[in-house]
């Protein structure tokens, strides 16, 4: 019995790629895109904080908002195409929705106060953080 078992098992192990796959494969390109977009997002809010009221209106930042939003969509699309992507779908969705809300708030209120800018800076960064750490976590140590 043992002989039959081993004679079946060995070729199977030998010829099959016997690895488990529970998470997506790490992507250095995606990690870089996430880091760069998070940086652009942070820079958006830092520049707003430095600006006075006359330079804080939504129209001043419209293009930058749209650049960041389209890159968030592109990252989300890349994650949707990956295998074993359930967690990334959740993280990307939350980030997309949070950023859209922040952009629309600024658009409807025209100008943001210091407090509002700081709050958005911190909360949006908090939505980026799990995405970045998750990607890095795929790489391991």
């Amino acid at each position: 019995m043992k002989r039959i078992f081993y004679s079946l098992l060995i070729p199977l192990l030998f010829f099959s790629a016997c690895k488990v796959s529970w998470v997506p494969q790490y992507s250095a390109q995606l990690e870089e895109r996430i880091a760069n977009c998070a940086k652009a997002n942070e820079r958006l809010y830092l520049d707003m904080l430095d600006a006075d009221d006359t330079a804080r209106s939504y129209t001043h930042y419209k293009d930058r908002y749209n650049d960041i939003q389209s890159e968030i969509s592109a990252i989300r699309l890349a994650n949707e195409a990956r295998k074993n992507n359930a967690e990334f779908i959740i993280i990307n969705k939350n980030l997309s929705e949070a950023f859209a809300e922040a952009k629309n708030y600024h658009k409807s209120h025209h100008i943001l106060s210091n407090g509002e800018i700081k709050a958005y800076q911190q909360s949006i960064a908090a939505f980026w953080r799990p995405l970045y750490f998750a990607e890095k976590g795929l790489k391991g140590d």
Binding site: V20, S21, W22, V23, E87, F88, I90, I91, N94, L95, E97, A98, S123, A126, F127, R129, P130, L131, F133, A134, G137, L138, G140
Partner: peptide, 22 residues
């Protein structure tokens, strides 16, 4: 927002744990 942030953080920790298990 904190509810959604927590959801994302837990998803990230789940993914990192799964990657470690893999």
């Amino acid at each position: 927002d904190e509810k959604k942030i927590l959801e994302s953080e837990l998803a990230a920790i789940q993914l990192i744990s799964k990657a470690a298990a893999e």
